[in-house]
């Protein structure tokens, strides 16, 4: 079910699909992000950048969405890179050591550059 406390908007930038998250990512809204990533993968795009600039909150349900897709995406030669997190959101990723598995960049542009390198 759609919830107006969270939204995800996809914009393709050449071969990278950028997902812009807004609001709260929790157990209620995580299925919306899951659908959005599924849609991107269905199109055969495996370079996925997630921009957190307007995301105010994340719980473990949100972290679980990235874990659900990372293996498949990397097997296809792509990646899920994360960018532009507010300190509070980054603190949740950092608490569990997620920066060990995911590239977390300060800015979207530097994350896109990393896809090319």
């Amino acid at each position: 079910m759609q919830d107006n406390r969270f939204s995800v908007k996809a914009i393709d930038k050449k071969d990278v699909s950028c997902l812009y998250l807004t609001g709260y990512l929790d157990a209620h809204t995580a299925p919306q992000l899951e659908s959005a990533i599924e849609q991107v993968i269905k199109q055969g795009i495996y370079k996925i950048l997630v921009n957190f600039r307007d995301l105010d909150y994340i719980s473990s349900a949100g972290l679980g969405v990235f874990m659900a897709f990372i293996e498949e995406v990397r097997e296809k030669g792509g990646d899920i890179k994360l960018a532009d997190m507010k300190p509070k959101v980054f603190s949740v990723f950092d608490l569990l050591g997620f920066p060990l598995l995911f590239d977390v960049e300060k800015e979207e542009n530097s994350a896109i550059v990393k896809f090319k390198s």
Partner: peptide, 11 residues
């Protein structure tokens, strides 16, 4: 192992 879930209690 690219696991998913089970992190809530850890948090």
């Amino acid at each position: 192992q690219f696991k998913r879930g089970g992190l809530g209690i850890h948090i």
